[in-house]
């Protein structure tokens, strides 16, 4: 098994190569505005560092969000295009599940909450029984509206840190962003030990979890004019 994992649903641009047992190489950069520029060089770097090539990759793992639209699409478009070009299966995982899994690895036992920054004063969030078991569908909400459901419960992620008044059990010793290495480890577990060609279960289609309807706003000049 050789999994190439990537996620651009949060400010992190994260890529890892995982052999089913451990991460062979990983790249993590936090820059919410440059997902498009950073992702492919990171993929290239991670492969080179592990001395591997795309031809060796048996599966691609991609975080499907929820996440702010523009960055989220970079990871999904990259993963699915590489998969289509090289005929490699693409497995989608909820980005929040990756953070939960990493929290479990870091020693957090359940129950707990994972929350990321959805901007516009909202969070993407879900509740977990433990690192592998999500109890609720991912949702987008204003922190104040979910206060009674998340107060005093351990909470992980940038969304919890940002709204610590609401997420009163916030754990600063736990991962802030998703890491592709954690996503890959979770996927490896789900694919089962061995050669990783077992049944494809527990994955989501590689399509974005937007959770919001598009803004139906037409810009004043909806196409570009020639710069003068």
């Amino acid at each position: 098994m050789l999994l190439l994992a990537l996620d651009t649903a949060t400010p992190a641009v994260t890529v890892a190569l995982h052999d089913g047992t451990r991460a062979l190489a990983a790249a993590d950069e936090v820059d919410a505005r440059r997902h498009g520029e950073l992702l492919l060089p990171a993929v290239d770097r991670v492969l080179a560092e592990a001395g591997a090539s795309l031809g060796d990759v048996t599966g691609i793992v991609v975080g499907v969000g929820p996440g702010p639209y523009t960055g989220l699409r970079v990871g999904l478009m990259t993963a699915t295009t590489i998969g289509a070009a090289r005929d490699i299966p693409v497995h989608g995982l909820c980005t929040l599940d990756g953070i939960a899994y990493a929290a479990g690895t870091a020693g957090l036992e359940g129950p707990f909450t994972v929350a990321t920054d959805a901007r516009r004063k909202e969070v993407y969030w879900a509740r977990y029984a433990d690192a592998r078991t999500r109890l609720t569908d991912p949702a987008v909400d204003r922190p104040a509206d979910i206060a009674d459901r998340v107060a005093d419960v351990p909470a992980v992620g940038a969304g919890a840190r940002l709204y610590a008044d609401t997420f009163t059990g916030v754990r600063h010793d736990m991962p802030e962003h998703v890491s592709a290495a954690a996503l890959a480890a979770l996927a490896a577990e789900r694919l089962g030990a061995g050669d990783g060609t077992g049944p494809d279960t527990g994955f989501l289609p590689p399509l974005p979890l937007y959770l919001r309807r598009p803004d139906a706003r037409v810009p004043a000049n909806y196409k570009v004019v020639t710069p003068r």
Binding site: A79, T81, I82
Partner: peptide, 12 residues
């Protein structure tokens, strides 16, 4: 979206 696809396609 197009740039991401093109880069991934060319790379792959």
């Amino acid at each position: 979206v197009g740039v991401s696809a093109a880069k991934a396609y060319a790379y792959a």
